[in-house]
């Protein structure tokens, strides 16, 4: 498992900025008066991937498959149960975020920031725009108010907001504008890695494109590296260099965007693509639904977690958990039958 990833990380061009190996996060299920642990929700269960500097890794999957938990583990907003999160810091040293003591983690914080799904919950309603956007600088040692005010004005312009808004409180802004404020705050410390957890899912359709364009422009200007989490394949396709597909706490497939969408190798990826409603009434019949439901991560099936729904399942799938393997250059799949299956991608439409 991890050995495969390690080999390929070395063989690929461009050094990974982030290398996640065997990441696990189990949430205990507690019951009774003394809150005894009776089981675990395997929210993230042996996840492996890497992100190269300057690229966008899209992370897709259905609700509850562990996307948010993965992204929070990477930023140590939650403590992982196991695994390594190797990050190549600005200083050049590679550190394991999963094991870093709190004090060193705090020193690393400016390099990695997060954008949240719900723009109404991610801004403190009691602070005005200046306080919100300048707080990262304040807690990281820039105490001069005028210096911070200049930088806040610059950041607001950068994300397309008027600097005059500085005295306003979040209640004065719509969802799209709030998301811009969240982005400005994330950029205040000049981060290298930005984790965006469904940044456009809660926005109105006509506003999503604005924020997507902004994220693309900022990446180009500021040389940012993104981990972009979404449940919407179209959005992920639009913004990502490479895409990772998650299913019940595990990575099913990782590949460069075009390869993944044109020649998916994992039956789940193909099923996900077939289920996407295409915004064209002329390509209707293509929508082939997958049968059954996503299993609970507290009680996953044996072997390949996808086998109860997989149209290609064989005996081996019920017993053995498939490992993530590189079956073509840069194309990693966790499926016993990945090499033999011919699956339809998007271009087949």
């Amino acid at each position: 498992m991890t050995s495969n990833t390690e080999q390929t990380t070395n063989s690929t061009n461009g050094h990974p900025l982030l290398d996640v190996k065997g990441l696990k996060k189990y949430f205990p299920i507690k019951k009774g008066f003394f809150k005894k642990t009776v089981g675990h929700v395997r929210a993230v269960d042996d996840v492996n991937f890497f992100i190269r500097e300057g690229e966008t890794l899209g992370l897709v999957g259905e609700s509850g498959c562990g996307k948010t938990t993965t992204s929070r583990c990477i930023l140590r907003a939650v403590d992982p149960t196991g695994g390594r999160v190797l990050y190549r810091a600005k200083s050049g040293a590679t550190v394991d975020i999963a094991q870093l003591p709190a004090s060193e983690m705090r020193r690393l914080r400016p390099e990695m920031q997060m954008i949240f799904q719900d723009p109404f919950a991610s801004l403190n309603p009691r602070m005005n725009l200046f306080d919100i956007v300048s707080e990262p600088m304040f807690v990281n040692g820039i105490k001069s108010r005028s210096e911070r005010a200049d930088r806040v004005a610059e950041l607001l312009q950068l994300v397309g907001l008027r600097p005059e808004y500085m005295q306003r409180f979040p209640h004065a802004f719509s969802g799209g504008q709030r998301q811009r404020i969240v982005i400005a705050r994330a950029l205040a410390l000049k981060p290298r890695l930005v984790v965006a957890d469904e940044p456009v899912s809660a926005l109105d359709v006509s506003v999503q494109a604005q924020v997507l364009n902004l994220l693309l422009d900022l990446q180009e200007q500021l040389k940012l590296t993104y981990l972009f989490v979404a449940h919407d394949l179209s959005v992920v396709k639009h913004i990502s260099t490479r895409v990772a597909v998650m299913y019940v706490g595990k990575i099913a497939e990782i590949a460069p965007t075009d390869a993944l969408f044109n020649t998916p190798k994992h039956p789940y990826t193909a099923a996900l693509m077939a289920a996407v409603p295409v915004a064209d009434p002329r390509v209707r019949s293509k929508m082939i639904p997958l049968q059954g439901d996503v299993p609970s991560p507290a009680n996953p099936p044996s072997g390949c977690y996808f086998h109860p729904r997989c149209p290609f399942a064989e005996a081996v799938c019920k017993q053995e958990t498939p490992q993530l393997q590189e079956i073509e250059p840069n194309h990693f799949v966790a499926c016993h039958r990945a090499k033999e299956l011919e699956l339809d991608g998007i271009s087949a439409n």
Binding site: Q177, S206, V207, S234, S240, V276, N349
Partner: peptide, 21 residues
């Protein structure tokens, strides 16, 4: 025009509708 689709080109800029509702 402003919605991303699975067939649109990765990394391209989408035409947007300015402002908000």
């Amino acid at each position: 025009k402003s919605i991303p689709t699975v067939t649109s080109e990765s990394g391209s800029r989408l035409p947007t509708i300015e402002g908000a509702i």
